[in-house]
Every structure is written in structure tokens, then in C-alpha cells.
Amino acid sequence: MKNDSNSRRKFLNNGLKAGIATVIGGIGLSKMATKLNAKTDGKKVELMTTDGHLVEVDASEIIEEKTTNSKSYTVREGFKNKKFVMVVDLAKCKNALKCVSACNKHHYITGKNAWLKVYKMQESKDTAPYWMPTACQHCDQPACVTVCPVDATFKRRDGIVLIDNNRCIGCRFCMAACPYSTRVFNWSEPDQGDITLNLSMEQETQPSPEHGGLPSIKGTVDKCDFCPHEIKKGKLPHCVAACPNGVFYFGDKYEDTVTNGDETLRFSKLLKDKSGYRLMEGLGTEPSVYYLPPVDRLVDFEKGLKQYDEYQSVKKSE
């Protein structure tokens, strides 16, 4: 676990460095001006340039670029210049269900249908069965967004599809439209217990589409939110961080990197090397979630059967 959070922090650090590196170009011009005012306290900061070299610069020379700071971030627009993607390596999945329980816990899922489920799949009688974790695919051509009459479910520039459950009218058209059956509905008053307590603990002041399930509202739709609340903190989505087998990789398509917390890989290369594909590509929904086929498996499918429960995805004790 410790290892995990370390590598997460590394991910964050790298991201920050890369971000700052892009700013550095701008420094040249403004250098003169700032130098006049800045107090040089001799603090050095390590930065990475665009071609991958580490350089040390004086802390006072760093100017935060206004466009990338949090003020220009809006819930409906998302993170600037990002395109989040996920890669799920089916060869590694043992149905450990840690992803599901982490997701359920952090999104206060108390219904009977989890947002992230591990499906027991078998294409036909003669082919090998495998485990397939599936949540919202965050499609680039999202059918749910097209049909929503009130723009309650929306697509952001960074690729994430979210739901504004303060606006949703509960028509469930989006659920009918989704070919991945990923949306869940609050048929009754969600029994999330002391969620308001948690709200203040998480220092979230306002319920927002960015943290689905916090709180859920009766008569509205919920689904996997790709954890923007974690990304904001520089962390990985809960499922990615929780998986003991490194099945999930998460990252930014523009940076072409994805990480599962342990290893960071080139996104394009990973897909190429391992023949990545997307679910129901033929429908044209253009998902943001990619799958690596369950080949050369080191894991035994049978072992996952112990945890498998066809009729339950949310354990009540969680």
C-alpha cells in the first residue's frame, strides 16, 4: 500500500514537472521583468524540459501560467489540454474485486448495482472464459449525452462524461441509450448514511458532478465518474489505485502515458504491442477505455470463481 501511494505521488510529481516545463518557454520573455521584482532566495527547483532533460532553475524564475491554474477549470469544461484514457489488461485480472469495493466505498454506493463490475465473460462455448472489469466507457461519441433532454449528462473536453444530478429529470433515456449498461438509477432515497459528515471530512463543500455519489439523489442517474476528484489531487482513480494486480492503467492520451501505479507506459505502444481494442467498436461510440486481450495469462480463471457472485456487486458491509 505504501508503495502504491509513493508511486502515485511520483505520477503527480512528473505531471507537475511536465506542466511547469511547458511554462518555462514563457519565462524567457518575462524573465527580465520578474527579475527586477523577485527576491532571489537561492532556492532551486528541478524541472523537466520538453525533450526529457532535467534542469535546475531558480524558484523565483518560475511563473505560474494563468490558463492552467485551477481558476480556469470548470466542471463542465474539465481539465485543459488533457484527454483521459484507461487501459484494462484482461490478462491480469483475477476477479480480486478490490477495484469494485474501492469504487463502492469511495462513491458511497449503497444501491444494488455497482458502477464498476467485473463480468464473467465467455464469447462462445469453445473459447476461454475471462474476467472483464467494466464501468463507464467515457465514449467520445456518447449515446447517453446525445439523448439527454436537459444536458444533465455531459461530455467534457478532457474526455470525461459526467452527470449533473441536480438537473437530471429521471427520464432514464440515457440508460436505454447506453450499450454498455453502465448507468444505475436511484430508484429510492439513497441510504448513504452519514454522507454529510463525510462531505465535510473530504472538504467538499458542494455536491458536484465531479464526485459522483456524493451525495446520490433519488430519481436521478449515477455512474462511474472517472474520479476527477482524485485526478485533481494528482491521484489515480480509486479502482486503479486499489487493484493489487495492476490491471488498470490510467493516463492522458495527449501525453501518451498511462500508469497503473507501479509502471508507467507509453499508451500507444502498449496498445500496439498487446493488440488493444475497445468494447463494441462497431457501434461507433469511441470509448475512452481500452482493453488488452486475455492472452498469455499468468492467472488462473478458476480462482476468481470463489469471489464471483452473479447476483451481487455491492456488499452491504462495505
Partner: peptide
Amino acid sequence: MARPDRLLNLFIHARLQS
């Protein structure tokens, strides 16, 4: 509709493509 109290949203936030 599960949220008939939000009926007005259909006009306030109407999206023509739905």
C-alpha cells in the same frame, strides 16, 4: 419521469438533439 418536480428543466435546459 422520476423527477416531475424538475419538469421546467425540459424548457430551461432544452437540448434540441434529444
